[in-house]
């Protein structure tokens, strides 16, 4: 789907964590992002959505969230548990 370029990673999280089939996963993510399903792979729409939500963009923007910082936001946004995030938060809180 395009990973960080689009919303591919987010749909991936829903399939893996909640065992959602592709259409259900896309609808869930689209709702959380406030976009239409067809725009999940629309770079022009998703780029700014990702920037605004702080969930990581594909290019390297100095100081913007990537890695575990972005994953904390992703877990909150999608309302899921991500093992690495849970561990990280348990270490910093």
């Amino acid at each position: 789907m395009g990973g960080l370029r689009t919303a591919g990673d987010l749909v991936g999280w829903m399939q893996i964590v909640r065992k959602m089939k592709i259409n259900e996963a896309k609808q869930y993510v689209a709702k959380k992002l406030g976009v239409d399903v067809i725009d999940l792979t629309n770079e022009e729409v998703i780029r700014s959505v990702r920037e605004d939500l702080g969930i990581g963009v594909v290019t390297s923007v100095a100081g913007s969230p990537k890695g575990i910082r972005a994953k904390i936001k992703i877990a909150e946004l999608l309302d899921i548990h991500i093992n690495s995030v849970d561990l990280f938060l348990s270490q910093v809180r």
């Binding site: 990973g3 960080l4 990673d9 990581g56 990537k66 575990i68 972005a70």
Partner: peptide, 9 residues
């Protein structure tokens, strides 16, 4: 690696 990656790893 998991501290650096953003997509499911």
């Amino acid at each position: 690696c998991s501290m650096m990656t953003t997509v499911p790893f």
